[in-house]
């Protein structure tokens, strides 16, 4: 069974979805990703969907779920590179993905992720201090 590769870059995980997702693949990714966050003690997850051209409500919810799961496991997540058609479809489906951070491309996504982690760290520092 094919699966979506999860790349480790230091304390970040990079997921690039380059094929059209089917439900089984999406569930597998959720599973793999949560395990990978746990295993690597990752601080951030970057999901690049710039080549994803089709979504349905299931995939939309899956993306939101991944973000929620990552947060529970102590990692920030950013969704990058959503195509206009995908964005319109999700909006029309009523999935506005509240709580999911987004960025235009991987570079900006990385910057946002770093900022978010720095923000979390400073919060922790305040509590500790």
């Amino acid at each position: 069974m094919d699966r979506i590769p999860i790349l480790r870059m230091g304390e970040f995980l990079l997921v690039t979805i380059q094929v059209d997702m089917h439900d089984q693949l999406a569930l597998k990714l959720q599973d793999d990703l949560s395990n990978a966050i746990q295993r690597n003690a990752s601080r951030g997850v970057l999901i690049d969907i710039s080549t994803l051209e089709m979504v349905d409500s299931f995939i939309g919810r899956m993306v939101a779920d991944i973000s929620g799961m990552a947060r529970i496991l102590g990692a920030e997540s950013v969704l990058v590179g959503m195509q206009p058609a995908v964005a319109i479809t999700l909006v029309e489906l009523g999935l506005s993905l509240p709580g999911v951070s987004t960025a235009l491309d991987v570079e900006r996504g990385m910057a946002l992720l770093r900022r978010k982690i720095a923000g979390v760290d400073s919060d922790v520092a305040t509590i500790a201090g």
Partner: peptide, 12 residues
């Protein structure tokens, strides 16, 4: 609102 949401989803 839809346009705003779509923009946000794209990261803008």
């Amino acid at each position: 609102l839809k346009t705003v949401t779509a923009l946000r989803l794209m990261g803008a």
